[in-house]
Amino acid sequence: MRILICDDDPLIIEQLQKFIESFFKSNHIKCPELVSFTSGESLLADSEEKDLVFLDIEMPGMNGIYIGNELKKANKNVIIFVVTSYSEYLDDAMRFHVFRYLSKPLDRSRFLRNMKDALTYYNSITVKIPVETRQGLYSFPASQIIAIEAQSRKVIVHTVQQDFDSIYTMDYWLNLLPKNSFFQTHRSFIINLDHVVDFDHFTIHLSNPQLTAYLTRRKYSSFKNAYLLYLESMR
């Protein structure tokens, strides 16, 4: 993982560095590579991976809105935190799917909460999940799993590429998949909240239009709350 800070204020850069280092230290995780820039031009000139970026909006030269759009064009999965005193830029920032909006002066507690969400999301799109079948072993990020379905004696892993017949049980998958983004809606279905299109009291429509998951009546409220919480964490 590589974390970048882009701000023309050296005091903000220093504060963000301290917050980031404190977050990883308190969670007993080695701090990733941390690189700072004082202009959007120097950030875009950097040719290495950009996994998580703290981006100021008001900077001389290229502003943060332009930089954010360019970063998303290069890597749609880059996690961007907008850091600014100017809330009027929020609508423009949301258009390139900013992960979070942090206002100056920075609040440490809020920063740490949001950093935890960012790391969880980063792991969901990068850490690979093994899928073992009778034909072989496959692996891909959890974000590519749409749903796990129990069909008679089979357990099917539906992914954005294809379906796999897993050799493991639903309980195995329930324990393996990230709790913040997967939910068991029925004894026959575990679904990825990121792939939900819409739902009613009985069914859930997913990003694959040919796949519909069942929703148990008694789980409707807890599922709705989990889904709304998930959407809130993605803002």
Rank of each mutant, 00 (worst) to 15 (best):
L55E: 02
P32V: 00
I65H: 03
S221H: 13
A93W: 01
M170P: 05
I129P: 13
L137A: 12
S166C: 09
D7E: 07
P32H: 02
R110D: 13
A147N: 06
S36L: 07
Y227K: 06
V98E: 00
D7M: 06
L206E: 06
K72D: 01
K179R: 12
T169C: 07
I204R: 02
Y121K: 11
I145N: 03
F202D: 06
L137N: 11
T126W: 09
S221D: 15
N175H: 12
Y168N: 09
E41P: 00
D91G: 00
N192H: 13
H97W: 00
P10F: 02
V127Y: 07
F23S: 01
K18D: 15
K219C: 08
A142S: 13
P178Y: 07
Q161D: 14
R217H: 12
S103W: 04
G64H: 00
L102I: 06
M1F: 02
K116T: 08
L211I: 09
S39D: 09
P105H: 03
I79W: 03
T212Y: 01
V160G: 02
L11K: 12
Y172N: 03
D194E: 15
N114W: 09
K104V: 06
P178T: 01
F189V: 07
R113I: 08
P178Q: 07
I125F: 02
L44P: 07
L137F: 09
T133G: 13
H205F: 10
N123S: 12
D92V: 00
F202S: 10
K104I: 05
E88M: 05
Q151W: 06
S22L: 14
Q135E: 15
H28Q: 14
N27Q: 12
R95N: 11
N180K: 14
Q162K: 15
Q161V: 09
K224R: 15
F111S: 07
M170C: 05
H28K: 13
E14Y: 05
V157W: 03
F54M: 08
I13Q: 09
Y121I: 01
I156R: 09
I156Q: 07
D107C: 15
Y89F: 15
K18Q: 14
E14M: 12
L231V: 10
K179N: 12
E132L: 14
E41C: 04
Q184G: 14
I5C: 01
E70Q: 11
T216A: 15
R235G: 13
S124Y: 10
L16Q: 03
E49N: 11
I5N: 00
V35N: 02
Y138L: 04
I148K: 03
F140K: 08
L215E: 05
T126I: 06
I148G: 01
E70M: 09
T159G: 07
S109L: 10
A93V: 04
L102R: 07
K104R: 11
K72F: 01
V53H: 00
K116C: 06
N175I: 02
I148M: 09
L16K: 04
F24M: 10
H201M: 10
V35D: 00
D171V: 00
K116L: 13
I190S: 04
H186S: 14
Y101S: 04
S42V: 05
F96S: 00
D92L: 08
L16C: 07
Y230C: 12
D56P: 10
Y89I: 01
I146C: 05
F183C: 11
